[in-house]
Design a protein around this nucleic acid. Structure first.
Length: 808
DNA sequence: GAGTTTGAAACT
DNA sequence: CAGTTTCAAACTC
């Protein structure tokens, strides 16, 4: 992993990216969030995975019905509507004309010129001119932090306005709009504990990824800003919205609640210019597009009222999260319920309804004012964090909603189905926050995991949030899913999020070569922003466990303070995952799976179901793993980049980046990395006696043999399948014999009958051999003979049964 | 399954 | 950078 200094972090809006894509990206993402410049910097369009334009509005709302009201009456002082106080809801709504309208509708429409800030409105309005082209990848990270526990965030917003960053444009120009009401961060109570915490500018980060995994736009300002950027990105859309909300607690100081929504969208097919109609009702922002169905994401904090889902498809239960991989309109509702009273537990129901996938996440967080009060600046507990990784159809769409709790705790969003699987974590830091959070991913809202108080540095903490099986809290109730629907979460394994990456030695980040599992973290005591880069494999591994609950807190001051144990399945001990794990297990014995000898490690994966000994390539040894990654990168900055890449123009499309050095194998065995990758050696190879070239007769012979073997295997498999089917069919047809008390046909397979059958089969084999029949033919003859034998046996059995019934 | 071979990775 | 060692996968028996 890499640890990025806060300074670097601050200047890296798009540090999270696919390394490969980054390498291909020539133009660094514009640091400035200016929409125009950003769009200009965007590379050529790439196919969008999601066609659905989205408008995401984040604002607290207690009920959808209040949205309209908030729209019209929302003022800077209107903290009740969008305030952070308990019961408030953050509603993210995205709708398109084609789809069902949201309950809130579009009360307000604001169209802003590119880069033109919207100021003066108490209601945040976002409208970004998006280029007709849409980015393939979108990642939106919004981090809103109000460190000021004394003054209401609303006041700050009112005066300085909110900052809104809009990034991510659909291929068709569909914008992703994020709107936050001015009162979003406004605390219900303006009480400050008198701490030295100063009002910090509301911070939003929006990162969109196009050809790059993430093309980020980061803007931090106290003034209202409208940042819009259109990026002709292609590929996958990843949206990450992280919202940090601080609710000042009279005694404990501000409490920060973070919500992260990551969404990967497949914008393919969108051709119509998205009509952006950002409506900020103070609670709901809606966007409608002519083509795509509306998508609604509702994130709400509710105190007494259950989170209301605006989507009809979403489950009525607030604890359900439905995610639809389909392009069909979807709604995502996330309700976070911070406690008005720090002493009361806060339930953060997360409702996301997307198509057929339904996820239920119940998150409960409680704050302990006493703890916070005792140590205003240091005590902090990890808020419950939920991560939902959803693999959409064809893995093109994903939506992940992760509510984040305390600032140091960053939750990650997994976006499977995309080559960009990295998650950017933005951490809000308020030096003085104490929070106790419990998180549980369960339909049962009552499940609460007591959070451990943690001492954190005043500095922001970045951490990686790998998802591991939860030992304690996770409770998942499988939802009935349609065949097309994929269950995001599995009840088989409990998982939780852990946040290991605490103060780690800073690693000079090489953004172009971020290794898998890279965590961008600030040095202890500095910086507020954190980034976590997760390897793509994490997604795969995490997909197995949908619900992740961060139930425990970890101290970030020292690695040893990590309280949450990574609970990856022990090697070979997780049968439930074996079926979904295509990768070969490693057998490392001496490397601790922390060197490139280990394929798992080299691929950026955690060891899972491996046969390794003394494995450190897991979350239990996150620190060691990070160090090992750093060491590997020190030796070879591109150590984690794919070895097989594009060759020079005119050469083979795929070639080994370094070339092989084979001496004895002739590059015709799997020892050779080129041969193993099924590519021919190239000019950069240093192999001796290479036979792995186009005209090589040995290679051709080998290939033919391999093809023949493959065909043979397929034939055998087909024959076995057919035979099995026949046997099953025969047994099925003879089932009545069982019910009638008769003997089953196989009872007639006596030793003599078996021997006779074998003789028949052998005779067929000899026959085929005599006539030099191919093996396939011989196998067919044998199988056919076997079928004949079975029929005769069954026939005899039936005859015997008939005779018996007559005689008896 | 044990032992050997092989070449990349790591080390000097 | 070259030579050597280590390592784990590939391969053979």
């Amino acid at each position: 992993m890499d640890v990025v200094s806060p300074e670097l972090n601050s200047i890296l809006p798009d540090e999270i990216m696919d390394t490969e894509a980054m390498a291909m990206e020539e133009d660094p993402p514009a640091e400035t969030p200016a929409p125009s410049s950003h769009s200009a910097a965007e590379p050529a369009q790439v196919p969008m995975e999601t066609e659905v334009p989205e408008i995401v509005s984040l604002c607290p709302a207690t009920a959808p019905t209040q949205k309209t009201e908030a729209l019209t009456t929302l003022t800077a002082t209107d903290s009740t509507l969008c305030g952070i106080s308990a019961g408030t809801q953050l509603v993210v709504t995205s709708s398109s004309p084609a789809g069902p309208k949201m309950a809130t509708g579009t009360a307000a429409v604001t169209t802003a010129q590119p880069g033109s800030p919207v100021v003066g409105q108490s209601v945040a309005k976002i409208s970004a001119p998006f280029a007709p082209t849409s980015p393939a990848n979108h990642q939106l990270i919004i981090n809103k932090v109000s460190a000021d526990g004394k003054s209401p965030a609303a006041a700050v917003l009112k005066q300085e306005g909110q900052k809104l960053l809009v990034t991510g444009l659909s291929k068709t120009g569909q914008p992703i709009v994020l709107a936050l009401p001015n009162t979003w961060s406004k605390p219900a109570t303006s009480q400050g504990t008198g701490t030295d915490v100063k009002t910090q500018p509301t911070q939003f980060k929006v990162v969109s990824a196009g050809t790059k995994p993430v093309i980020g736009v980061q803007a931090v300002s106290s003034a209202n800003q409208l940042l819009g950027s259109s990026s002709p990105l292609q590929a996958q859309q990843l949206k990450t919205v992280q919202i940090t909300k601080k609710t000042p607690v009279s005694t404990a100081g501000p409490m920060i609640t973070k919500l992260i929504i990551t969404k990967a969208l497949n914008n393919k097919g969108l051709t119509s210019q998205a009509t952006v109609t950002p409506v900020v009702t103070g609670r709901v922002l809606t966007q409608s597009t002519p083509v795509t169905p509306p998508r609604t994401i509702t994130i709400g904090e509710t105190i007494s009222t259950t989170p209301q889902s605006l989507s009809s498809s979403s489950s009525s239960s607030n604890s359900k999260v439905a995610i639809s991989p389909l392009k069909s309109p979807s709604k995502v509702t996330v309700a976070a319920q911070p406690p008005n009273s720090p002493q009361k537990p806060v339930a953060l129901p997360l409702n996301v309804a997307l198509g057929q996938q339904i996820l239920t996440v119940q998150q409960t967080a409680s704050t302990s004012p006493a703890k916070a009060g005792s140590s205003q600046s240091t005590a902090q507990t990890v808020k419950p964090v939920q991560t939902v990784a959803v693999g959409g159809v064809n893995t093109s769409q994903f939506k992940t909603i992760i509510p984040l709790a305390t600032p140091p705790n960053v939750q990650q969003i997994q976006v499977p189905g995309s080559r960009f699987h990295y998650v950017r974590l933005v951490t809000a830091t308020t030096g003085n926050t104490a929070q106790t959070a419990n998180a549980s991913t369960t339909t049962n809202p009552t499940t609460i995991q007591p959070a451990k108080p943690m001492v954190m540095n005043t500095a922001a903490v970045r951490m990686s949030v790998p998802i591991v099986p939860a030992q304690t809290v996770k409770q998942v109730v499988p939802k009935p899913m349609t065949s097309a629907a994929q269950v995001v979460s599995s009840s088989q394994t409990q998982q939780r999020l852990i946040m290991p990456a605490a103060p780690l030695p800073q690693i000079q980040p090489n953004l172009t070569n971020l290794p898998p599992g890279t965590v961008l973290a600030p040095a202890p005591g500095s910086g507020n922003m954190g980034y976590a880069v997760l390897p793509a494999q994490y997604v795969t591994q995490l997909q197995q466990s949908t619900f992740v609950t961060l139930a425990s807190s970890s101290g970030f001051s020292a690695p040893s303070s990590i309280q949450t144990q990574a609970r990856l399945p022990l090697n070979g001990l997780s049968p439930s995952e074996t079926t979904s794990r295509p990768r070969k297990p490693c057998n490392c014995t001496k490397s601790q799976c922390l060197k490139l000898y280990c394929d798992c490690f080299a691929n950026g994966e955690f060891c899972n179901n491996c046969n390794c000994v003394n494995c450190f390539n897991n979350l239990d040894h996150e620190s060691d793993r990070l160090k090992a990654i750093k060491a590997c990168l020190d030796r070879n900055p591109v150590a984690f980049k794919p070895k097989i890449g594009k060759g020079k123009e005119g050469e083979s499309e795929r070639r080994h980046s370094k070339g092989c050095n084979c001496k004895k194998s002739g590059c015709l065995k799997n020892y050779c990395e080129c041969y193993e990758a099924k590519i021919m050696c190239s000019s950069i190879c240093k192999c001796v006696g290479c036979k792995n070239f186009e005209e090589s007769p040995e290679r051709k012979t080998l290939m033919h043999l391999a093809d023949a073997a493959e065909v043979r295997v397929q034939q055998q498999t087909a024959a076995k399948t057919k035979l099995s089917s026949q046997i099953s069919d025969l047994l099925t047809r003879t089932t009545p014999a069982i019910s009638s008390g008769g003997k089953l046909p196989y009872t007639f397979v006596t030793k003599e009958v078996a021997e006779a059958t074998c003789d028949c089969l052998l005779e067929q084999a000899r026959k085929a051999e005599r006539y030099n029949q191919p093996q396939a033919v011989a196998e067919r003859l044998i199988l056919e003979e076997f079928g004949h034998c079975l029929r005769r046996i069954i026939s005899s059995a039936a005859k015997a049964k008939t005779d018996c019934s007559i005689n008896c």
